[in-house]
């Protein structure tokens, strides 16, 4: 009984914490961007402008819930929910601290990959159902981008799996007690990070949205809370990828014991979230063909080489 309650508590806790973080990220990103652009950002509502989140939420909830008359109504409504649900499901396997994990599956890593690729449907359906040229272009870009980068996202993680001998995230974290995997798997880390940026279609790989050419791309026609779902989905995605980087390459909750493990986990995660924002603040968007050739011509061979090398070394040492 108490165990069920405990899990329920963890589930609810994870949901609440993750959604709050996603909401706070709106404020956090604006403040950080402003900082790097020598501005202040939102600083008027509440202390440090923190209540800006509330204001934005109130605004977005009260916006007119408008559906374009030419849109495919039900798909249009359904599409933004997919990304939120898929990403939230991805959090199910994240080990926040010892014992604090919703489901420590033995195939946790595969589950994460599966969930992150489900997000592509959201973009695809959202763009197609909008019945708008720009949205369609955006969703096609999104689909192609997610599918392409997913390939070596998985492959880049295989080095981690080889080193830890497990698909379970808890095991992977525990396997890093002596050395974070970022050292042996540096190439894997770089590739995973880049793929992560592409998966969440964040700047500089935000080609599905690309305001300057596609007028917000797949979500051009969205407004109100439906747009808000895409928005939240995106921040949840950032958090998930950051959490995964911390888990796979930076030892998850591991850290000196003067801080509790869960704090270490969040510090690491936030560091990567900040890195995401720094990327957006500094890098320009590549052309679409550049994005594709980077993926297929450089990152894919590199990840395969990395896997090959890791496997060979593992065989040579551990064999």
């Amino acid at each position: 009984m108490s165990e069920t309650l405990y899990y329920l508590l963890i589930i609810v806790g994870v949901l609440v914490v993750m959604l709050s973080i996603a909401a706070l990220l709106i404020w956090y990103e604006r403040r950080m961007l402003a900082l790097w652009q020598d501005r202040y950002g939102p600083n008027r509502v509440g202390p440090f402008g923190l209540m800006q989140v509330m204001a934005d939420m109130v605004k977005i909830f009260f916006k007119e819930d408008w559906i374009a008359p030419f849109a495919d109504k039900w798909v249009f409504i359904f599409a933004p929910t997919i990304i939120v649900v898929a990403v939230l499901l991805g959090f199910a396997v994240v080990p926040f601290a010892p014992g604090i994990v919703v489901a420590d599956m033995n195939i946790g890593l595969l589950f994460f990959l599966a969930m992150s690729s489900l997000g592509a449907y959201s973009i695809l359906l959202g763009g197609i159902s909008s019945n708008n040229k720009y949205s369609l272009l955006g969703s096609l870009r999104g689909a192609a981008q997610v599918i392409s980068y997913e390939v070596f996202m998985g492959i880049s993680l295989m080095g981690v799996v080889i080193l830890s001998d497990s698909f379970s995230l808890v095991k992977i974290v525990e396997a890093q007690k002596n050395m974070w995997f970022v050292i042996p798997q540096f190439i894997g880390f770089v590739i995973f990070f880049m793929a992560g940026v592409a998966e969440t279609h964040r700047a500089p790989f935000d080609l599905p949205e690309a305001e300057s050419e596609l007028v917000a791309g797949f979500h051009s026609e969205y407004s109100g809370m439906k747009f808000g779902m895409f928005f939240v989905g995106e921040y949840l995605g950032i958090t998930l990828i950051s959490a995964m980087i911390a888990t796979f390459f930076f030892g998850g909750w591991l850290g000196p014991s003067f801080l509790p493990p869960i704090v270490w986990f969040f510090i690491k995660t936030f560091a990567f979230i900040t890195l995401f924002i720094l990327l957006r603040a500094s890098l320009p968007r590549p052309r679409y063909d550049q994005l594709m050739s980077l993926g297929w011509k450089i990152l894919l061979p590199l990840s395969l080489l990395n896997l090959l090398a890791t496997a060979a070394i593992k065989l040579a040492i551990g064999g």
Partner: peptide
Amino acid sequence: SILRSLWLTFLHTFHKRFTIQY
């Protein structure tokens, strides 16, 4: 150059802000 860009942007953390608090 990408890393350099990131670094230079990051250095802006320590710059004076232009915003006038009207």
